[in-house]
Amino acid sequence: MRALIEELCSVFGPSGQEERIREAISSHLDGLVDEVRTDRLGNLIAVKRPTVSGEGGRRIMLAAHIDEIGVMVTHVDAQGFCRFTTLGGVLINSLIGSRVHFANGVQGAFGMEGSPLARERPTLQKLFLDVGAESREGARVQVGDTAVFRSSFGAVGDRLFAANLDDRIGCAVLIETLRELESSPHEILAVFTVQEEVGARGATTAGYGLEPEVILAIDVTATGDFPQATPMEVALGKGVAIKVMDRRMISHPKVRGWLEDTAQAHDIPYQLEVLEYGSTDASAVQVSRAGVPAGTVSIPCRYVHTPSQVADYNDALGAVRLLVNALSGAYPS
């Protein structure tokens, strides 16, 4: 799965322009599921029908979002500098010094108005992108073009470094889960969603269309394990996190209990997660139609929404084990 994570992290896919990452993920689903389709907003839906019949079988939607944060060009000036807006909750403070890549291969460096010695807090109004052009005509990008943050994929031991572990690591966990899941009483609706970073828009419509009986999102979560971090129990390397609550959602107690019981039964290390900022696709599906019991399997990740995110490979492996074991058995009655 490590190679898969690295591969997925290398594919372009900002919110609203997920074609490439969808095609990349689609190519890994061959033989793993019974049906693959793309819906009207661009969600990639992979259906795996139940292999065993039983009382505890449900229609379970698993959602991992394929989009990543990035920037969109709003203006190209006469000298070729680009003004931009953000796609998703990009942390503006983290931009200076990072690099973006456009779909056509053009790269961009962030610059800021004024002297570097007298720097104030960067704001979108003061920042611009240098795309290596000397004129508007010479810029190989135009208004509406998008770019994603990129730095080379790295690993130190089991710690993985990439700009978009959010949520390519979750996508890899979902693909790996489909691969390892040998038998299940459930109809698995694996949805690789679009536009999560701009408000869980893909999950909203997919949730409506699929009418699942349970929703589990697979996403990254923040941690409280670095200097002066917002106090939070979750730490890297301490196992998969089972969400209790985030900004927009309280997990359904039965779903959370199912995941906790599974982890305990199979000796899978896990942590309980209370996230004060941010949410996942599960919160959108939870309120779809007449409501859906919702939970989230989280992979701890430091520096989420910055161009340098860090996660622990073992936590991702734990997430796969938790999902495979949970989905192999019955949903609690």
């Binding site: 969109m72 709003t74 203006h75 807006t85 208004v143 893909g202 909203t204 419509t205 409506y208």
Partner: peptide
């Protein structure tokens, strides 16, 4: 200019299974 304002598309595109 991207990122400015909002329109009825905001709710239309999320109706039912998406538009």
């Amino acid at each position: 200019q991207p990122g400015v304002g909002g329109t009825d598309v905001g709710t239309i595109h999320l109706a039912r299974e998406g538009v």
